[in-house]
Amino acid sequence: MTDDDLRAHLRRADPGASLPQLPPDRIAPLLEHTMAVPFAEATVTPITTSARRRRVALLAAAVVVLFGVTAGWALLRPSSGPESTAGVPDVQLPAISSASVTRLTATGMVAKCMEPTAELLRSRTDFAFAGTVQEIDGGVVTLAVTHVYLGTPVDLVQVAQEGGASETMLGSGKFEQGGKYLVAASEGAIRICGYSGEADAPGLQALYDAAF
């Protein structure tokens, strides 16, 4: 059986071939919806201890950002716009022996936000959890995870919190020792805009319950 025969065989079982094209009147709103989102949340890549190759590449990218190389930041996020130029502080994360730690960043940038909805919380989040701040040390907040709503289950999450973080999270605006938080992240960066904050911030728990 030649390659061509094999491919012809496979194509007969292709469930995607018969899918009709999306009409233009459905493409336009989809594009508008996509481009309308002011993605103020800075983006860095997640670090997990998985040995997968992709993760290793992401780790390298995240380390570059976490060490505050401004040029690296600009390179990684050339599209983040003038309002999100607040960099990540030059912090070195302490080594942690636990097998499951996820590291995130939080920046104090100014954000233009749409009203948070459960749908947007779910669709644009790749990691969401409830946790209690265990330690704040040198700009690094360590949270003990009490519940993972979405994403890889981990025990601890470390957040590189910008020194003078402006009030970007619901509630007090930043992580405080012993506080309980609901945190949503997208690609390693905490989502602000009403999606992360103190667990008892009005409406936040309900938003999480509705989304996950």
């Binding site: 919806h33 996509t34 050339p78 599209s79």
Partner: peptide
């Protein structure tokens, strides 16, 4: 929808 969002953000 999510894929488009990532493409938009990482267009560069």
């Amino acid at each position: 929808s999510e894929t488009l969002m990532v493409c938009w953000r990482r267009l560069d």
